[in-house]
Amino acid sequence: MGLFGLHYKLERKTMSLAIGIIIAASIGGLIEIVPLFTIHQTVEDAPDMRVYTPLEIAGRNIYIREGCYACHSQMIRTLRDEVERYGPYSLAVESKYDHPMLWGSKRTGPDIARLGGKYSDEWHVKHLINPRDVVPESVMPPYAYLTRAKARIDDLGLHLTALRKVGVPYTDEMIANASNDAYGQTSPDTPFAEGVTKRYGEATNVRAFDGQPGEPTEMDALVAYLQILGKLTDAAHKAKTAAAGE
């Protein structure tokens, strides 16, 4: 009968044509996507990988809200110039807890997968208020209003709960203390600060990111997030040393 004969029959039957379309279109996705969930090597093991703190989640949500991903990628490719410009290439495990991932598709600005710790908090705050104050030729929009807006932290427990439902290992304790931990992370001299390092590790940044301790602003949250980029695990740096030692 051949392809044309088969098609000649299909185009006379509405339901058969619809089913034919669904089958033909489903194969590619099934073969390419399903194994990514089942093949273990797809995502490396990184025992030191930590989850985002509630404040960093709030900052990440501001990053998403403002559409920063439209101009900044968070995915360093396995190319020499990228590794020399931005640092070790990105591993799959580094975005394991990223719901959704923010790999990006365009670099109107530079990649920021390893931005954490590269600049001071003061630099970030100045840069976000008016990028051209620190980089005169920058084309990034100003985000001065972030310093004026209080971050919404009262509902962060709900955010962590939702993230746990999609697979991020937040504990009951983390969820119960989410709002306090967000406050504590920007208030180092208060009793709330201790809980943050207890739950998220000694290396967690606890400080007034925008220079003003107390009630976190949206600027605090965003800078806290930017300062953790590339710092959730050492896996990428270890892979580099291991490769060099071979």
Partner: peptide, 23 residues
Amino acid sequence: MPVSFGHAKSYSAFSGVQDAMTQ
């Protein structure tokens, strides 16, 4: 997964590399 029925915000069911491929 929506944060709640009172939130516009939701979190993608997928993360990282699987999310990138699905996207």
